[in-house]
């Protein structure tokens, strides 16, 4: 059973805190921009991409994916903070189902990540990209679904850890590898076969691939999307359902 009021207030709390904490907003926006313009801008001169998209344009979908990945995981990891500082008890003794808590947290992550990715998306004219209004709607939709999937994944992670010391473990051993094995910085098709295998079990890969379809649909060369658009969508929707279910189970177990 899902209690709408509980879900609403859990999301509202995260949103309030997000808006209030300016430094967090600035840093989550700054990181992708640094990658986009400093790494992307520098690499553009090294990586010849012929007449197709430039390297900086190529990593734009990946940078959107990065924004979503970091902010979704960060948002869900706040569950560990809530446990550490006692607030989780207030939620756990309330007459609401554990699943409502999980849905509330996943939707918080989805909302905050989507807002941040839309801010990054607004930089596309500076990269010389042309994106139509329909595509923009599609991009926001893909970002939201991907954010829901990754936030749910974050909840599963958070359920395994008790203290915030584990945060750096999650960041270094899960989040960073997920980012580099997602086709964000280099196309999946140019990777060694072993690494390709990892990219294919990473939902972020398919989210970013869907964004590539929407951001440079006409690209044909090595920088083009790696999978069919329909497959991308199916995978991220399936990942959302899968992780939110697992997250619900992981949470209930602690009853």
């Amino acid at each position: 059973m899902i209690e709408a009021n509980a879900v609403y207030v859990i999301v509202a709390r995260e949103f309030k805190k997000f808006v209030r904490e300016r430094s967090r907003l600035v840093s989550t926006i700054a990181r992708p921009l640094v990658w986009l313009f400093l790494v992307g801008g520098g690499m553009s001169r090294l990586v010849p991409t012929g007449r197709g998209v430039s390297y900086m344009q190529f990593i734009f979908p990946g940078i959107l994916g990065m924004t979503i990945l970091f902010s979704s995981i960060f948002s869900s990891i706040s569950i560990i903070w809530d446990k550490e500082f006692g607030f989780m008890k207030e939620i756990l003794v309330a007459p609401i189902s554990r699943f409502s808590v999980v849905i509330g947290k996943a939707m918080s992550g989805m909302l905050l990540s989507t807002i941040q990715s839309v801010i990054i998306l607004a930089f596309f004219p500076f990269l010389g990209l042309r994106i139509g209004p329909l595509e923009i709607i599609g991009i926001v939709f893909v970002c939201a679904v991907l954010a829901f999937a990754l936030s749910s994944f974050g909840i599963v992670l958070a359920s395994f850890y008790e203290s915030y010391e584990s945060f750096s473990v999650i960041m270094n051993f899960i989040v960073m590898p997920m980012f580099f094995l997602s086709g964000a910085m280099y196309p999946v098709k140019v990777m060694p076969p072993v690494l390709q295998y990892f990219t294919k079990v990473n939902p972020l890969t398919f989210g970013i691939d869907a964004l590539k379809h929407l951001i440079f649909p006409l690209e044909k060369g090595p920088m083009s999307p790696d999978f069919p658009f329909v497959i991308d969508l199916l995978v991220i929707v399936a990942a959302s359902v899968f992780f939110v279910t697992i997250g619900g189970k992981a949470f209930e177990r602690k009853g």
Binding site: N5, A6, V9, R13, E90, A94, P95, I96
Partner: peptide, 8 residues
């Protein structure tokens, strides 16, 4: 308020 919503 958070509490009031949680307890419906």
């Amino acid at each position: 308020l958070f509490h009031a919503y949680l307890y419906d």
